[in-house]
Design a protein around this nucleic acid. Sequence first.
DNA 1: ATGATAAAATACCACCTGGTACGAAAATAT
DNA 2: ATATTTTCGTACCAGGTGGTATTTTATCAT
Lengths: 186, 186
Amino acid sequence: MDADKTADVAMRAYWASDPTDVSINAICERAGVSKPALYREFGSEDGLMRAVLDRYAVQVLSELFEILQPQTPLDQALTALIHFASVDPKMETGCVFFKMRAGKHRLGPKTREGVNAVDAGAVAAFTAYLNARREAGDWTSTQALETVARYLVEQIGLALMQRAGGQDPAQIKDTLTMSFSVVHGQ
Amino acid sequence: MDADKTADVAMRAYWASDPTDVSINAICERAGVSKPALYREFGSEDGLMRAVLDRYAVQVLSELFEILQPQTPLDQALTALIHFASVDPKMETGCVFFKMRAGKHRLGPKTREGVNAVDAGAVAAFTAYLNARREAGDWTSTQALETVARYLVEQIGLALMQRAGGQDPAQIKDTLTMSFSVVHGQ
DNA sequence: ATGATAAAATACCACCTGGTACGAAAATAT
DNA sequence: ATATTTTCGTACCAGGTGGTATTTTATCAT
């Protein structure tokens, strides 16, 4: 029983469609694993989803957080974020995390906890980054750090959900660029 | 068999939770209607959802569109929209239309068609309104009308989905206000 | 009152879901 | 080579889904 491969198959399936639309049966089939084997490894559907979310966070979301290096100028970071969320072919079918967050009420307790943790982590990362840019004199707004951090996270989430819905990337980019224009570097 | 009452019960159920999370069985129970009676009236789940969407559009969304009177100043309209989407207790559990749109892939053909129609209608209404305000000298941006119209619709949708997710209305209002600040009246 | 007709609900269908009891197989120990 | 333990998968479970065949109920001429 290859737990790594199974989690990977589940991740891709959740990513391509939607976590709540992919059944355990379908995952077992695609992974070539029996159902009891999967349950022995992950305990429950909730356990599997949580494992997949953790995996996704380190394998994919890390790429997003790497944009937020303290020394990266604000404008450059915003541009990179726009590209990541609205153009990057890797995110063509949206984002596992934001899909899970959108259907939070359908998740089990472990997965929901994981979603909350990632959410809080994202806001914290953006807050830290904005704080660094403020100290660097790159961002002169007087708005509360966390409010703007939340704003950016929500806008990125919106763009990624639009991508999952198959909307035109050019339109998504327009919307995201417009929303980011309230946060200027300089 | 009271079709009106049944559609109303379905609408409230879809509104309170999520269209794809409410079963036909549950609706029949709550409406005090037998399942064959419901199928005789609406044909299928898709038919019922479509009927509910149409009903919702005239009963609820009309209130949103009424904000967009051509003579209403831009700032006033934006303020009213912010209130409607992020504070109005009527929209506490989000919006049937945006919930359906978010789970478009789970809908039947009739309902999906209806969602597309409402979506296009919303963009058209905002486009017409912005055009009126531009002619009134109230809005001097050089951006494409439809791009900004889409932007506004998406931001309202985001706010309403956040409300459905139980997020703090104050935070939602912050986010929506910030996003609307790129569209100024004068 | 009775027989024909229209309306409505009970009871069912096949299918799919998450989850597991239990027997078979394989690996290890003796 | 045999006994023991551990791994693994078939085959199943109860419950719920959208949808419907069939029977019951009610209406209405006569």
